[in-house]
Amino acid sequence: MAASPPQKINVSLDVNGETRNVAIRPADTLLFILREYLGLTGAKPGCLNGDCGACSVMVDHTVYKSCIMLAVEAVGSKVTTIEGLKDSPIQHAFIENFAFQCGYCTPGFIMNCHALLKNHPQPTYEVIKEWLSSNICRCTCYEEIQEAVMSVIEKRE
């Protein structure tokens, strides 16, 4: 095996309500740890550069691109991935409004929408745009995603 073993540290991550103990390299991104060590492959690698939003997850109440966050930075916080959403209105809305095709950007988009709707129960179009322009969907024309978000807002009224 390796002559100089990788310098790993043991950390405890709270992911989707479970405590997960894992040995990580400080250089590992949260995305890498979620996918490779915790088996949570819902967050997707799309650019590893913070550009596309496919890897978006929530850390406490904020949505982050997990490719530009170190796993070690999430210690002490509550991480929620798409696998941690259960029956949320936005998931249903995505299905009903055909807001995805290939589905690859979907977990990231849904997490961002979910965070948006948690933080802004009645967002204006400007706020929706501000938030959702953080993610790229290459299949839909975005109208379907807009309709999905709007349908959740309308049902709240």
Binding site: G50, V63, Y64, M69, S133
Partner: peptide, 12 residues
């Protein structure tokens, strides 16, 4: 600030 990168990136 709002012109920089995108909203999710600016959370970081």
């Amino acid at each position: 600030s709002m012109g920089i990168a995108d909203h999710t990136a600016r959370n970081k």
